[in-house]
């Protein structure tokens, strides 16, 4: 699990001052280039409006109710879908993971179903639910469920045999074993699954909006593009990107908070 090990490392790096300054410089440089190049004609202004124009459009959008409705539609679909996927993934993962027979019997099916792209289900959900939120939810749950399930399975398999045998010798009930032994071991994996699933869920929510027409930012984006509103298209891309960053930061913060007792996080604080 290389991603688990390096996540705290990355965070620590971000805290140092000069790094942040260079990074901000980088952002400004890109912004400035995208401002100047269209103005002096290197980039076609019809397709690449200067960055100030995109920013103005975005700020205008911030004042409009419709924009915020779209944002809340997108976020609501993301949150509901992610919650369902987490609950299902954890429940199924813990059950399959703690029964060796189930694990052996289901592993081929899981390996087969997991790589099936969620977007393949788009035509089916269109038939079933049209442009309702359910369409997006099915796509999100299908894609995010596997991310969570696989991590939970890793986590449950990671339980220290000595600890488990000790718990058994002390006649811990199944429920107590689950709460005191399995769950704390699996939790870091669950949080990794959450981080991955949170990103995937946003991708599929936006995809459903864009391709199917489920209400949300993605649909507005599709409409803006097909009606030729170029700077609005870019402004909405930026807005979706900001939501993406916010979700990443939220997932990392939550991971850190929930795992504040865990050695991988505590070591990080001590340094």
């Amino acid at each position: 699990m290389t991603t688990v090990a390096t996540a705290p490392e990355r965070r620590r790096r971000r805290l140092s001052g000069s790094t942040a300054a260079l990074g901000i410089l980088g952002l400004f440089t890109i912004g400035a280039l995208l401002e100047v190049l269209p103005r002096i004609g290197v980039l076609n202004r019809r397709f690449f409006p200067p960055s100030s124009e995109i920013l103005t459009t975005l700020i205008e959008q911030l004042g409009e109710g419709a924009f915020w409705t779209a944002v809340s539609d997108t976020l609501r679909g993301w949150a509901i879908g992610l919650t369902i996927a987490m609950v299902l993934g954890i429940a199924v993962g813990v059950i399959i993971g703690s029964v060796p027979f189930l694990r052996d019997v289901t592993s081929s099916t899981i390996e087969f179903l997991r790589p099936i792209p969620s977007v393949a289900l788009i035509p089916l959900v269109v038939l079933l639910y049209g442009t309702k939120l359910q369409s997006a939810l099915i796509l999100i749950v299908y894609a995010a469920f596997w991310q969570v399930l696989v991590q939970v399975l890793y986590g449950v398999a990671d339980v220290d045999p000595v600890v488990r045998d000790t718990a058994r010798s002390y006649r811990f009930s199944r429920w107590t074993q689950l709460r005191q032994v399995v769950w704390p071991t699996a939790l870091p994996y669950v949080m990794t699954g959450f981080r991955l699933a949170a990103a995937v869920a946003l991708i599929l929510q936006v995809t459903a909006e864009l391709v199917i027409g489920v209400p949300g930012l993605g649909r507005n984006l599709g409409v803006a593009q097909s009606s030729g509103a170029v700077s609005l298209t870019y402004a909405l891309v930026v807005a979706v990107g900001i939501i993406g960053i916010a979700i990443n930061l939220f997932a990392r913060a939550l991971e850190r908070r929930i795992l504040n007792w865990h050695p991988s996080v505590r070591r990080d604080v001590a340094r």
């Binding site: 990074g23 901000i24 980088g26 864009l210 993605g218 593009q225 993406g244």
Partner: peptide, 25 residues
């Protein structure tokens, strides 16, 4: 260090959003 935030931003944009942009371009 210069590029990291920029890359993180582009990475956070859900890829399907690029389709309308590229269709435009």
């Amino acid at each position: 260090e210069l590029l990291e935030p920029v890359l993180e931003f582009f990475r956070a944009i859900p890829p399907p959003v690029l389709i309308p942009v590229f269709t435009l371009l």
